[in-house]
Amino acid sequence: MDHGPVTSEYLRLGLHAPAIADLAQPGQFVMLTVARDADTAPVLPRPMAIFRWERRTGRIEIVYRVVGEGTHRLSQWSVGQVIVTVGPLGRGFVIPSGTRRIVLLGRGIGTCSLTALAAVAAAQGVDVRALLSARHADALVGGDACRASGAREVREVVDNDGSSDIGLVGAWLKERRALGVDQIYVCGSGRLLDLATATGVSVQVSLEAHMACGIGYCHGCASGHPGLGEESPLVCRDGPVFQLPAV
């Protein structure tokens, strides 16, 4: 439907996928087949967060960064081609009833799964405070979308001017926490997750994993340990969003 750069770091892929747009929830993802037409490779499809969607037009939007062969091939797709897309998949973010204020913490491309949450929460009258972090300004994504969807506060921080310093982010979070926060949502950074869990507020985190099937039968997205009886939950089916209990 449309395909092109958003910043020097990221590309946007707009797809006509009414069945997915109809059902999508914040935090869910799709599996995109990278192999074109009758090609049988690349073999593995790519899991991609649904950046936003519109039920009325049936459009879904993916934002991605070219990191390897698969996403490089993806970047060469042109408008008009049919791309095999399976979704929406996984368990997304939950906004418990009675939620009044939430904080979103995202890093880099990880903010892509938070923007839709900001929109849905703001539409329900929830006070949304987002902090989006990245290496530099071109690696920031989703800030405008959060603002446009009615987030009360959107703070963008970057490494190259020091504003993303973990101490500063921690202080910012503490101030928001003092206002009363019902839920913190995290994606894209282990350090942001540590800050969130340290607040004692209940946290939902969206995890990433390498995936092959995306629907729960290949076990490629889990982890285990020889000698252990049970593997970790499947990121594709039990996640990608996991709820951490409030301390």
Partner: peptide
């Protein structure tokens, strides 16, 4: 019951894939 191997369990290769599930 057994839990399998640790992540990452998948990698793309040229016209193929690796799994260490």
């Amino acid at each position: 019951p057994r839990s399998g191997n640790r992540a990452h369990r998948l990698a793309e290769t040229y016209a193929g894939m690796l799994n260490s599930v």
